[in-house]
């Protein structure tokens, strides 16, 4: 019986654990051969600073939720609400720290509302967060008179954005450091702390968690709030980068964040979301997109390419997994 457990690296089952690495290697090799600039330090720096950071922070939040067996369709709402409150307060003359704090609090509220729907009204995560997604888009349209961006380009605000998104620290842009902090925090939460054990149990078998004395509603609330707050951080970074709050712009993260997290699950033999896997998934998506761009594919073909990539990786990951009786 023990032999069964230790699979040969060449078995299909084991092979499926490396599909993400293969795909990543393939992407890197193909594009470094077909394009001149792909492997240049400048390009890699550019991809990480501009493409990876925001998606990665949102995906980390999604990772917590998916690890706990749920899903959060309202990540975009948290991103946007945080940016909206942040910019509204800045525009009204409040200080930047207060704006940041209020923005994160707005995201927290979204997460808490999700938790309320799931724990108290017993709506399952998909539908609860779907409802919040609808309501969130209405709230933003109402708040912005149908979707007018709030743009703060005057000199007055420049230092704020300079600090948040355009500054550098030890040769790396601040947002990269923020991502690093977020990654470490989520890594500690999921892989080093008691909370992570509860999340794993909820994701693997909620019944076991309940019967083992885990306070399921409380832990679920934390899950959705952590996710929302991470999205709030992304919202503040995003709006600082483009110096405006653009309504509904957070929705663009949803699909990629889910895709990146599930691609990440393909890296572990038990298909569990992990911080490293998610970051890998984000990088795979970002470099794929960047490579396609450098090869000269337009945005539309990029989207097809990304869709096919996600489809193939997941088909391998799920399809090759050993079947249980």
């Amino acid at each position: 019986m023990m032999e069964d457990v230790r699979h040969s690296i060449f078995s299909l089952d084991a092979l499926s654990n490396y599909i993400v690495l293969f795909a990543f290697a393939a992407v890197m090799i193909i594009f470094s051969v077909t394009t001149a600039n792909f492997l240049s330090l400048e390009n890699i720096y550019n991809v990480i600073a501009n493409k990876v950071v925001l998606l990665a922070i949102v995906s980390l939040g999604m990772t917590i939720v998916i690890a706990a067996g749920g899903i959060d369709l309202s990540v975009g709402v948290s991103v946007d609400m945080s940016a909206l409150v942040f910019f509204s307060l800045l525009a009204a003359g409040f200080s930047a720290p207060l704006g940041v704090f209020a923005g994160l609090f707005a995201a927290f509220t979204v997460g808490a509302f999700n938790a309320f729907l799931i724990n108290k009204l017993r709506i399952d995560a998909f539908l609860a967060t779907l409802g919040v997604l609808f309501i969130g888009s209405s709230v933003q349209r109402l708040a912005t008179n149908g979707g007018t961006p709030i743009t703060l380009t005057t000199q007055e605000y420049a230092p704020v954005f300079q600090v948040i998104s355009d500054s550098q620290l030890l040769g790396l842009p601040t947002p990269v450091w923020i991502l690093a902090l977020c990654s470490i925090a989520v890594f500690l939460l999921l892989h080093k702390m008691v909370f992570g054990r509860y999340v794993a149990a909820l994701g693997a078998k909620p019944g076991v968690a309940l019967y083992s004395g885990v306070r399921v509603p409380r832990e679920l609330s934390k899950v959705f709030i952590y996710c929302a707050v991470l999205c709030g951080i992304a919202g503040i970074l995003l709006s600082s980068q483009v110096k405006s709050y653009i309504p509904l712009s957070g929705d663009a993260f949803l699909l990629d964040a889910i895709g990146a997290t599930f691609i990440g699950t393909a890296m572990t033999s038990d298909r569990r979301p992990t911080v490293v896997g998610t970051l890998m998934g984000v990088c795979l998506l970002a470099f794929m997109r960047n490579g396609l761009l450098l090869v000269g594919w337009n945005f539309f073909w990029q989207q097809v390419g990304i869709g096919v990539l996600i489809f193939v990786v997941l088909a391998f990951s799920f399809g090759l997994r050993k079947r249980e009786e």
């Binding site: 895709g259 539309f300 097809v304 990304i306 997941l314």
Partner: peptide, 26 residues
Amino acid sequence: AVVVFRMIPLLATLAVMNIASGLELT
């Protein structure tokens, strides 16, 4: 994707949605 590859329908159709909308744009 759902029957043969046993992907979660949510994911499978999400990927197909990406592909379809990308093809439409193309």
